[in-house]
Simulated assay, not measured.
Amino acid sequence: MDKTLEQQLLCLAHYVRDPAGSAPPEGMEPRRLAIYRRLFYGNIESMLASGFPVLCASLGSADWHRLVQDFYAHYRCQTPLFTELASEFVLYLEQGASDGLKLPQWLSELAHYERVESVLLLSNAQPPVVHPSAGVLDTVLVLSELAWPLAYQWPVCDIGPGHLPKNPLSEPTLLLAQRKDDHKVYFSRLAPLAYAVLASVQQQQWTGRQHLAALAESMGVTLDAVLPSGQALLEQLFLQGVISG
């Protein structure tokens, strides 16, 4: 590519990304540059707004556009795939947007929560085959790729334009996101015991008995103390397709 043309295209790209911090290309009408800017920015903003409707509504129009403009101008995505744009946006928020934006502390968790549904819907994973006769205590358990245990400091299920919390909860919000056979994603609340079991299954390739033994040790009780309720919980999760052998 001709060096002059390459430099012109780079100058145009920088300006379209960040017109406030970049010089416009020489010889191009401001009207045409504004068209390019609206076209590219509008496409990105529209995709993100459709992927994060609660976040967008909760911030309000002005703060939402400032956030997307900062993302568009300064964040460097690691993939060219539009289907992964929302995941890149979540990473951008987790890494910390520009300090001058003064964003609410719950923002990155709400974005993650909203993104989970899309990721599960687009996943090519298949639900595990359920074998009701399998003995969960002596089977090495694995977590379904379509079931995600989630823990948040903020009440992500309740955040919206009418409820913008100032402080995190004293207890975490524990959830299970699962795509079921009807190809819909469902969110359900998890008790601390159920979350602890699923987190253990997610991290370790152990039998059901080993998971319950580790849980009992962390609680300072004997295995016998948690075995009846723990076994019943594992069997329930097994039948629901959340875990498998």
Rank of each mutant, 00 (worst) to 15 (best):
D158K: 05
V116D: 07
V156P: 06
A62T: 15
G220V: 12
Q95P: 05
Q202M: 00
A49V: 11
L81A: 12
P228D: 05
E94M: 07
L239E: 07
Q105W: 11
D70K: 02
D224M: 12
T79M: 08
V142R: 10
S50H: 13
S188G: 01
S244M: 00
L10N: 02
G162R: 09
P24L: 07
A225F: 14
V242C: 00
A134M: 08
P104K: 13
H211G: 02
T207E: 00
Q210I: 02
P155G: 03
S123L: 11
V16C: 14
V116C: 09
S58V: 04
L120W: 05
D18V: 06
V16Y: 09
R209V: 02
S58F: 07
V242L: 06
L55T: 13
L143M: 09
D181T: 14
G60A: 06
R66D: 10
L146R: 03
Q95A: 13
E117S: 13
A214M: 14
A13D: 01
A216Q: 04
W154T: 13
G135P: 08
V129R: 13
G230F: 01
I243G: 04
V242R: 04
L5G: 02
W106D: 01
G160A: 12
S22G: 08
G208L: 05
W154S: 12
Y186A: 08
F82S: 15
R38C: 07
L174Y: 07
S58E: 01
D2S: 13
P30W: 14
T173G: 09
C157H: 05
L146W: 06
N167F: 14
S50A: 12
G162D: 15
P155I: 09
L190H: 02
L55C: 08
A191D: 10
L81V: 00
Q78H: 05
L39C: 02
A216L: 11
S108G: 05
L150N: 05
G100T: 09
A196I: 04
S144V: 06
P128T: 04
V226G: 02
P24E: 00
G100N: 11
S87E: 13
L101E: 03
Q153I: 10
I243E: 01
F71A: 07
C157D: 11
W154P: 09
Q205N: 09
V201T: 03
V116N: 00
R209T: 02
W106Q: 10
Q203V: 15
V90H: 08
E217Q: 11
D158H: 10
G100D: 13
G162P: 00
G208Q: 00
A57W: 12
P53F: 12
P161F: 10
I35V: 15
Q69M: 09
P30Y: 04
S108E: 08
F89S: 01
P192N: 01
A214T: 11
Y36L: 13
R31A: 15
L193T: 13
S218F: 05
T139G: 02
L137A: 02
L93P: 06
V156H: 04
A13G: 05
E117R: 12
P53G: 10
S46R: 15
V54T: 13
D158E: 09
A225H: 15
Q126T: 09
Q236I: 04
Q210H: 10
L9T: 08
L215P: 06
P165Q: 14
T222I: 10
S170D: 08
Q178F: 05
